Amino acid sequence: MTTIDFKLGRDSFGRLNLTTADGVLHEHVSPVRAFPIQAPLDGLALVNTDGKEVAWIERLEDLPADYAAMVAEELGGREFMPEISRIVDVTSFATPCTWTVATDRGETDFVLRGEEDIRRIGRDALLVSDTHGIHFLIRNQWELDRHSKKILDRFL
Rank of each mutant, 00 (worst) to 15 (best):
M81V: 13
L16P: 08
A21G: 00
D104W: 04
H132A: 13
G77W: 11
R120N: 01
H135M: 12
R105A: 14
D89F: 06
L152F: 09
E143C: 03
R10P: 00
F80L: 08
L16E: 04
A21H: 10
T100A: 09
G133L: 03
V24T: 14
V71H: 02
D124L: 07
D145S: 05
D104C: 08
R154V: 03
L144I: 08
F93K: 07
W56H: 12
P40V: 00
T103W: 05
R105V: 04
A72P: 02
G14P: 12
R119W: 00
W142Q: 11
A94R: 15
T91S: 14
G14Y: 04
K52V: 13
G23N: 11
A69P: 03
V32W: 00
L46M: 05
E116A: 11
T20F: 01
R105S: 12
S12A: 10
G122Y: 03
A102S: 14
I84D: 09
T2A: 10
T20R: 12
M1K: 05
I151L: 10
G76Q: 13
M81G: 05
G122N: 00
P82V: 00
G51V: 00
R146D: 14
L60R: 05
Q141F: 09
G114C: 03
D153K: 15
L44N: 03
N17R: 10
V128K: 02
T98E: 13
E107K: 11
D66V: 02
V128T: 09
L156F: 07
R146C: 03
